[in-house]
Amino acid sequence: MIREKFLEQMCAPKRDTVFYVGNQQAHPQSFIILGVVYPERVKPTWQN
Rank of each mutant, 00 (worst) to 15 (best):
E4K: 14
C11S: 02
P39N: 11
G35D: 10
T17E: 03
L7S: 08
Q29P: 01
R41L: 10
Q24K: 10
L7P: 00
E4G: 00
G35V: 04
R3Y: 12
Y38F: 14
R3Q: 13
R3C: 04
K43Y: 08
Q24L: 13
F6M: 03
R3F: 08
A12N: 08
G35Y: 03
Y20G: 09
L7E: 05
A26K: 14
T17P: 07
R41Q: 14
K5M: 09
K14I: 06
P13W: 07
L7F: 06
Q25E: 12
H27N: 09
N48R: 15
H27V: 05
N23W: 08
N23Y: 11
T45E: 07
Y38G: 01
V42A: 13
L34T: 11
E4C: 01
T45W: 13
Q9G: 05
L7G: 00
A12S: 10
M10N: 02
F6C: 00
C11T: 08
Q47V: 10
P13L: 04
T45H: 12
C11G: 03
E4V: 05
I32C: 14
R3W: 11
I2Q: 09
P28M: 09
Q25H: 15
H27I: 03
Q25N: 04
V18E: 07
F31V: 06
N23M: 04
Q24R: 10
P28Q: 04
E4I: 01
A26H: 07
F6N: 01
F31T: 01
F19A: 02
N23R: 09
P28R: 02
L7A: 04
A12C: 07
Q47G: 02
V36D: 01
D16T: 11
Y38Q: 05
K14P: 00
I2M: 12
Q24F: 07
V42F: 06
Q24E: 11
M1D: 12
V18L: 10
H27F: 09
M1K: 14
V18M: 06
P39Q: 03
A26R: 15
K43M: 13
N23P: 06
L7Q: 02
P39D: 02
E4Q: 11
R15P: 03
I32M: 14
F6G: 00
G35F: 10
P44V: 04
C11D: 03
Q29W: 13
E40T: 12
M1P: 05
V36T: 07
K14E: 12
I33V: 12
I2S: 13
R41E: 15
E4H: 11
T17H: 09
W46L: 08
V21H: 03
T17D: 05
M10I: 11
T45Q: 06
E4R: 10
Q29E: 09
R15H: 02
P28F: 11
V37T: 13
R15T: 04
W46C: 05
L34Q: 08
F31W: 14
K43F: 11
K43T: 09
K43R: 15
F31I: 07
I32H: 11
F31R: 03
I32P: 07
K5Q: 06
G22I: 10
Y38D: 04
I2G: 10
I33G: 01
